[in-house]
Amino acid sequence: MMKIVVFGTTALFLTASSIASAQNSQTSASTSPDRLNAADRNNLTDMRIDLIKAALQLTPEQEKLWPSVESAIRARAEDRKARVAKIQETVGRRADESRVDAMRNRDPIAFLQRRSEALAQRSADLDKLAEAWQPLYKTLNPEQRQRMAALAIFVLHDMSDVVERRRAQLEDED
């Protein structure tokens, strides 16, 4: 069973990296090469959902509980896309300002309010995701729970790698 998880995860990341590479070659000078277009993001979400579902190998009874989990995953992805778009809009408005003007025009209170709203949205999304997973998780056998834990650890490890790369990029820019 672990072979399925490893194979699926490998396939997901190979596919995701090819999507990212294709996107990089198509990006214009005005966009960051790390950004995927909407279709690529949707494909990546679809692949992640398929990976989770394949790794869990749901029974017919468990399949009945899956749609709410998938909906919560998709809703969370859409909300994240909206948050990123809002950040890009804010950054885009400030792109024309010089560094001195940007520093002079900073509003720390507005920043804190935007950050608070974003964190509240993320919190609400995670609550909805946990709520959607709970009935299904109760029906998982120990082997399915083990595969789910392995996927979660792998995803968290991958997320920490992304955070470290972003942090390194920011340090390089400074």
Score class of each variant (00 low, 15 high):
R99L: 12
A55Y: 08
V69W: 01
R165K: 14
S30I: 00
A85Q: 13
N43Q: 06
L140S: 03
K128H: 11
G8L: 13
A29P: 01
V163P: 02
R41Y: 01
T15F: 11
D107S: 12
A11V: 14
F154V: 05
A149D: 14
S17H: 01
L151V: 09
R122E: 11
R165P: 03
V100R: 07
I19R: 09
V100F: 08
I153N: 06
D172F: 02
R147K: 14
N37C: 05
L136S: 10
D96Y: 00
S28D: 10
S68K: 13
Q169G: 02
N141P: 06
S98L: 04
R104N: 03
P33R: 04
D127S: 11
F111M: 10
A75C: 01
R145S: 13
L36K: 03
E97P: 02
E117S: 11
M2K: 03
A85E: 13
S71Q: 15
F154W: 04
V162K: 13
N24L: 03
A152V: 12
M2I: 07
S32C: 02
K138I: 08
V5W: 08
T9I: 10
A22L: 05
V69A: 02
A120W: 12
R166C: 00
I153D: 08
I19E: 02
L129D: 06
S28A: 05
Q26S: 11
A22M: 05
S71T: 14
A75R: 08
E131D: 15
A11C: 09
R93E: 13
P135K: 03
